[in-house]
Design a binder for these strands. Structure first.
Lengths: 194, 194
DNA sequence: CAATACCAAGCAAGCGCTTGGTTGACAATA
DNA sequence: TATTGTCAACCAAGCGCTTGCTTGGTATTG
């Protein structure tokens, strides 16, 4: 079921399709993006898309899968060496913000907004990956609570953080008064005990 | 441009359509809900919908408008008598949570998730209402900051609260470990200085 | 010469919406 | 009181268009 990772492969035709789809899905949403839109942006005819993907939904499914893996990679890399629970939480927050705003892959927010566009079969597959991703967060927050740096329940804290982070997609502008790094700091400050 | 409020009118045919549409839009999203779906649930044929609304989008637009007005009403009512900035913020948070989870009208979350489904013309109209709604929040948070109960910038605090509140739609279950009231308390605790 | 990537053309289904006509409740008229 | 007119609410049928997807064929490449 799990296929090769091609999202970041600049040469691969499938990779090109995925990157274009990610950007269109993020702008207009899955249902309002047609296969003709995607094909036109890639520079091929709509029918040719189905040489690479069995159907439209599978484009979304593979995109979601690769986005999760990509963010996990980035987290793994930036977590190396960090031991303090608070520092580790900051890494997670920063990575998620970067993902949401296209600095890791493109269109992480699709994972939440377009969840309902997947068929039940695809949902189950992606759900397993998403669960693993969320488990990282819970582990991190539990450690923080054990160290006395968190008063709220870890799962509740995670919900609040995810909501606040996802919401930035609707208002954050890179040329505004905040950087993503400063947003990460302020979010961590909000949740973590002084 | 602004029409009568019929959402809560049980007799009105338009009201019935709006309530059905609200529930379907919330479940499946605007694009994936067809006019035939709405009509079937109401108990009429699809063409008959257009006796009440000029087009599908106007159903969404009027729904959004009435939902904002409904929440503002509830806020106004519950704010009466509250003078402490912290208490007033708690009212706003509690009302927004109630609205998101269908205890005020149905489908407030549509206002965020289906924003892109409106035409630019409709967006402008609803935007004015939304601005007024958001201004209530900013006024409240500014007062709180002036009273020393808030360290973050009011607009940033509002974004965080909105995100956390909207996100509850994806996970909150009435029969779970939390009540909406306790969620409101914890969210206020998180943002407000002790 | 085999595999890959694409084109050209179009099908079947579903979409929002239109049209012309019917129904039943209610008020005005005689 | 019986008749007529009005109007909102709805039906029946289907139009024109867009959708995701299919099919059969053709270049290009190693």
């Amino acid at each position: 079921m799990t296929s090769d990772r091609v999202l970041e492969n600049q040469q691969s035709a499938k990779g090109r399709v995925l990157r274009v789809a990610a950007s269109l899905f993020r702008e207009r949403g899955f249902a309002r993006t047609t296969v003709r839109d995607i094909a036109a942006e890639v520079g091929i005819l709509s029918g040719s898309l189905f040489h690479h993907f069995p159907n439209k939904e599978s484009i979304l499914a593979q995109l979601m899968e690769e986005l999760i893996l990509l963010v996990e990679d980035a987290m793994e890399r930036q977590l190396a060496g960090k031991r303090e629970p608070r520092d580790r939480l900051r890494v997670l927050v920063a990575c998620e913000l970067q993902a949401i705003h296209g600095e890791i892959g493109t269109g992480f927010s699709i994972l939440v907004t377009e969840w309902r566009s997947l068929s039940p079969a695809s949902q189950a597959h992606i759900l397993a990956l998403r669960d693993r991703y969320e488990q990282r967060w819970l582990d991190c927050l539990k450690n923080l609570k054990a160290a006395g740096g968190l008063s709220a329940e870890p799962s509740l804290a995670r919900h609040f953080i995810r909501g606040a982070a996802m919401e930035t997609w609707h208002w954050y502008k890179p040329d505004g008064p905040f950087t993503l790094a400063s947003l990460a700091d302020q979010l961590v400050d909000l949740v973590v005990h002084p």
